[in-house]
Amino acid sequence: MRATKISLFILLFLLLGIAGCSDREEARVETKDLVQGVYASGQVLPENYYRVNSKVSGVLSEILVEVGRDVEMGTPLLRIENEPSERSLEIAENQLELARKHAAPDSDILNRLREQVDKAYAVFSQDSLDFARFGRLQDDDIGSRQAYDRARLQYRTSLSSYEIAKSNLRETRDRLRIELENARNSYLAQQSRTGDYTLLSVIEGTVYDIHPNKGELISPNQPIMEIGASGRFEAELDVDETDITLIEEGQSVFFELDALEDSVLEGKIMRIYPRIDPVERTARVVASIDPEDHRLYPGMSLEANIVIREKEGVLVLPVLYVSESNEVILEDGSRKTVETGIRDLSYVEITDGLEEGDIVLKPEP
């Protein structure tokens, strides 16, 4: 009787277990084409995009183009009325005159060094005569060895001093010539900064934005305009540093833009910048983008999927059905380790351990 009760209990437990398994979600191993990609985000920019800035400070006296206008290479863009810099020019002129004075052949600096060379040569000449005389005496066994050694030491010391004096003269003369050239260039540069300063376009393209207004003060290196190619765009993407080693030039890219619902644009990876942003921990990548029939604008945000690998007709399971240790739960509740290959956001390739049509249960949360 006791054995019968135990058997009934076991049977009830198995039935409950099977019923519990039947309530869990399941998936069937199937064949699909699988694409492995890397996610990136970024923005649309025109090709050859650059920011126009000034090398001088001053007042923006005239804007010669409008936003949206096409420009040629060399087209005048704006004029800056340079701030008065008479004091700076005077300082540069004084520095140039001082450099000329110092670099002149008869300057006090060079004359003092020549005197040092002459004195060092006079000492060296006398010491060389003494050394030669003591050498002859030594050869004739006249005079002490100690006196000869002192004369030799004095000769070597004066020779070294003479060479150092000549080197100082030569190096100082070269340095003063360089300082004169630098002072001359600084003076000419300061002269060129007086009066009006006109900025020209360095490419053929379109003016996409103008930041300051006429009459505003412009600082050196301040962005003034944004110019890029007309109607030709590219995508500037940020790729996580953990994925950047997978990216190569020529890979296909698929874009989704917030401004273009239900549209997917295509492109190719063109450039990979070899630097990781120390704050964002991302690398910059530039891809071409085909607008098809859509109108694109600089600054449009986008998301991208960069295709790394593609496989046709492979066995797959939903990624939620395979654990991090590549373990799956079979239909009877048992667990099995499988081998996996590439994956996308939804599916993972099963390379070994399961066959098409096998049923796998979804792990409990």
Rank of each mutant, 00 (worst) to 15 (best):
E324C: 05
E62N: 11
R284A: 07
S325M: 06
R175F: 08
G313I: 13
E30I: 11
L361H: 05
Q146R: 15
L60P: 05
G17A: 12
G333V: 11
E327L: 01
R112E: 14
T282F: 03
A3Q: 07
E115Q: 13
G341E: 01
S107N: 11
V307M: 15
R173Q: 01
L45E: 06
T194G: 07
E339R: 15
S88P: 06
H102P: 05
E97K: 15
C21F: 11
E204C: 03
S22F: 01
Y121F: 14
V338M: 06
R28D: 09
V71F: 02
L45M: 00
D196G: 08
L180F: 07
E339A: 13
D293Q: 15
E26M: 13
G20Y: 12
G215A: 14
R173P: 10
M1K: 15
A120S: 14
L361W: 04
S230M: 02
S301W: 02
I178T: 12
F254P: 07
G205Y: 04
T194D: 08
V29E: 06
E171H: 13
L8Y: 14
L78F: 02
R133T: 02
P105S: 00
V328P: 09
L96V: 04
R232P: 04
R281F: 05
E216I: 04
N213Y: 11
A132G: 13
L320N: 14
S160T: 11
L15Y: 00
A189E: 15
L96D: 03
L113T: 02
V35I: 00
S201Y: 02
Q43L: 05
A92N: 03
A287V: 08
T242N: 13
L265S: 10
E327H: 07
L265Q: 12
L176R: 03
R112Y: 12
I308S: 03
E280I: 12
A104T: 06
R69K: 05
D332F: 04
H211T: 12
R136P: 02
V202S: 06
L15K: 01
L110R: 00
E171V: 11
A304M: 07
E310M: 04
R284E: 15
G74V: 01
V71K: 13
L137W: 01
A147H: 04
S128G: 00
E83N: 10
T340K: 10
F13N: 12
P84N: 08
Y297F: 10
L64S: 03
L320P: 08
A27W: 00
V239F: 01
R284K: 03
L129Q: 10
G341A: 10
E72D: 12
G341F: 06
A132Q: 07
S323G: 00
G215M: 06
L77Y: 08
L169I: 00
Y50R: 07
P291A: 07
L11E: 14
M225L: 09
